[in-house]
């Protein structure tokens, strides 16, 4: 299905896509058909900078198990690192 379900958040940081490194400004997360992953549906994550055009994009297409594992891994490494070390207010 085309779920249309989309979560959009602002992000601060950088990503590397087909056009090289760029400053990411927003991220969208959705469940829909992947372009490349060999599944009918995946969790898709795009980090974008709309001001730089559509090619300013880092894309992920993950199974739900691996997407959740990624989220947990992010939580684990942040919990293990000194508090605030990677904060936007460091």
């Amino acid at each position: 299905m085309c779920t249309y379900l989309t979560e959009k958040i602002s992000v601060a940081g950088s990503g590397k896509g087909g056009c090289g490194w760029f400053a990411g400004r927003e991220a969208i997360v959705y469940v829909d058909h992947p372009v490349h992953a060999p599944y009918t549906h995946t969790i898709n994550i795009d980090v974008l900078n709309p001001s730089l055009g559509p090619a300013a994009r880092v894309a992920l297409e993950l199974t739900e198990e691996t997407a959740l594992a990624l989220a947990e891994a992010i939580h684990r490494v942040l919990a293990a690192a000194p508090a605030g070390i990677a904060s936007g207010n460091q």
């Binding site: 959009k8 969208i28 959705y30």
Partner: peptide, 10 residues
């Protein structure tokens, strides 16, 4: 096409 679809979705 995939970048365009992501941009329109966003």
């Amino acid at each position: 096409p995939d970048d365009a679809a992501a941009a329109v979705r966003a």
